[in-house]
Design a protein around this nucleic acid. Structure first.
Lengths: 178, 178
DNA sequence: CAGTTTGTAAACTTTTTATTTCACAAAGTT
DNA sequence: AACTTTGTGAAATAAAAAGTTTACAAACTG
């Protein structure tokens, strides 16, 4: 086997890593997060911060930051191995599961942020509406906003159901894996 | 009606715009794109670059850039109105449709980028495998990669079906709007 | 206990992305 | 035809994000 062929194999692995990373950025994570995920994935076993630092050519501190982000997103996990002092990290090996994790954590975040919004707006609008002296024009405007609020709430409830549809695995019943 | 109440109404509209923008960033678009979408949405009728520039406090050039990005993403449309010289832009008013448009354009892009990938890798790997002198270790590695390629292809086909599931509106049969 | 190693915060630097300014062609007006 | 207005490139600047260096506490080692 020539050196050239050895190189080819490694090159193919790097191709995969790039593709995984590329795919990943579509979820809104930074390219480095994607790359690290790809690296651990292709490594087929847990890695330490030092190894990652070595593999990416980036500082250990950066790896620490990236790994933490991945833990937050539920796409990596810290694992314990007896006798090993350094922290070891694995990634989800199932592409579908990774998709679901990122999809749900992104949208769940938005849903939570909007939790209190409609109540606040509604209360405020109704209280203005209850005042005696309002021009007709303004009343129309307020009613528009109230209607808008309702639609917004409906949309968010749909989003929540959608997230659940993915998280529960229901999606795979209708869009099967193979 | 006091000035204060007038202010409250405008404030509520701004709240909406911010929430729309915030929601939007989850699709990976810049905050300004989200904000412009929110502004046109709340305006309830098409707007010109000058109006947008006025409303955002940003330069007209920037608005031109933002609007073009929105056209690319299929979340805005240029419309013609006789007698009006300036270009007018509307946005999709249906939150669900906006979700679907962004979801599909994002993932479609990734799917397209990956179109040729697997063929290239597979050809390359098989050609190495056909060489006579390969260490057992390397053979295992290559077979791993081939298996990986297969899984990757399956995943991408699933993604394509998923995109279609949204684009066709099928999703709403299983996660209904109301 | 003195000496390492490990992970991460804090401050700084670099790179990338967002935005503005300036310029100019194309279309519209008078 | 001279004069405006409109939309958008291209280059420059500002703002934000990504990444590094230094420093240090906590957990290990001998």
């Amino acid at each position: 086997m020539t050196e050239e062929q050895k190189g080819k194999i490694n090159q193919m692995e790097d191709f995969f890593i790039d593709k995984i990373a590329d795919n990943m950025t579509t979820y809104g994570v930074s390219p480095t997060v994607g790359r690290v995920l790809g690296i651990i994935y292709m490594n087929r076993k847990p890695m330490t911060l030092n190894e990652l630092s070595e593999a990416t050519g980036m500082s250990k501190t950066r790896m620490s930051q990236v790994v933490r982000e991945m833990l937050d997103l539920n796409i990596a996990e810290k694992i314990f191995e007896k006798g090993v002092r350094r922290d070891l990290y694995t990634v989800e090996r199932d592409y579908y599961q990774t998709f679901v994790s990122l999809f749900t954590s992104n949208w769940q975040k938005v849903i939570n942020k909007n939790k209190m919004f409609d109540k606040k707006v509604k209360t405020e609008l109704v209280s203005i509406l209850e005042q005696a002296e309002i021009s007709e024009e303004d009343e129309i405007k307020i009613n528009h906003l109230l209607k808008e609020t309702k639609e917004w709430v409906d949309y968010y409830q749909w989003l929540a159901r959608l997230v659940d549809f993915f998280e529960s695995g229901e999606i795979f019943k209708h869009v099967p894996k193979t």
